[in-house]
Amino acid sequence: MSENLLEVKDLHVQYNTDDAVVYALNGVSLNLKEGEKLGLVGETGAGKTTLALSVLRLLPKVGQIASGSISYKGEELLDKPESYMLGLRGRRVSMIFQDPMTSLNPVKSVGDQIREVLDLHFPQLTKEAKNEKVDQMLQLVGIPASRKNEFPHQFSGGMKQRVVIAMALISQPELLLADEPTTALDVTIQAQIMALMGQLKDRFNTAVLLITHDLGLVAEFCDTVAVIYSGCIVESGTVEDIFSGKNNHPYTKGLIGCIPDLSKDEDRLHPIPGHMADARTLPSGCPFADRCANAMDKCRKERPEAFSEGTHTVFCHLFDNMRGGV
């Protein structure tokens, strides 16, 4: 089995705003192997984007990594100087952002913006070689190379996201952090973009951390899944582990329950009642306890321990008696 490419261990991240401390990540651990596709699933505000930005050390000024470790190919990123991160960002780890409408610089041509990655990380290439590569990459994402001198406002949303993907993958990175790459796009374009990402991922053998709230997308695209809630990973495993419906975390069950089943004649959707807890106070017990139908007294007092079966891990007190002697 291949080595872990990315290992996040017990990561705590907080935002120190003027009026309060917001606890965005509370002890997140996850592993990503080379070439693997990991889906990070959770609702808005669960800390998905914070996690991706922490890996690149691009948190906004108020964000602070309080404790934990992020190791990349065995190197601890949190100890590295900024100069090391400059060589990592865009070269070995690339990121695709949620909103293609705003993530491109409006005053630079798309060709220039893609070539900039080469200028930064491959200064030894000649100008002709760089332009050649940009043309190839544009064609690879389905944009005629003749459009490289056009500006972002001349492209549609789906085309812009293709440009962003071209920009992220031209350096053939080892890891791609895709932060809701299709959320801002309509459904037909979504499928195209995901197919394109799948193709390019295979071509360059890039590992992908796909951040999304769309379980369907994860089931289709990913090898492994981590479910995040209120800054804690509540369940992780292979796609089969999660979608087999066996020993799921109540939150995951709720998420799967939200997908309407067209084979049944139902009028209503099944949302999870309530809202995510206020991130300004750290929960003492399970973060999901307040919304959980199966919550016990213990859930509000103690953080649940991991319950593992093979590749599948759940953090829930419901499985305490199944843990046995371990």
């Binding site: 400059l86 865009g90 070269r91 690339s94 705003t102 491109l104 610089n105 005053v107 920009m167």
Partner: peptide, 25 residues
């Protein structure tokens, strides 16, 4: 802006982000 974050995620240093991406805008 988001595109400034994109520029940093590409590996631009703070100085390059300001010079090549922020000033013109």
């Amino acid at each position: 802006m988001d595109y400034i974050r994109t520029a940093r995620a590409k590996g631009n240093s703070q100085k390059d982000v300001i010079l090549h991406h922020a000033i013109r805008n």
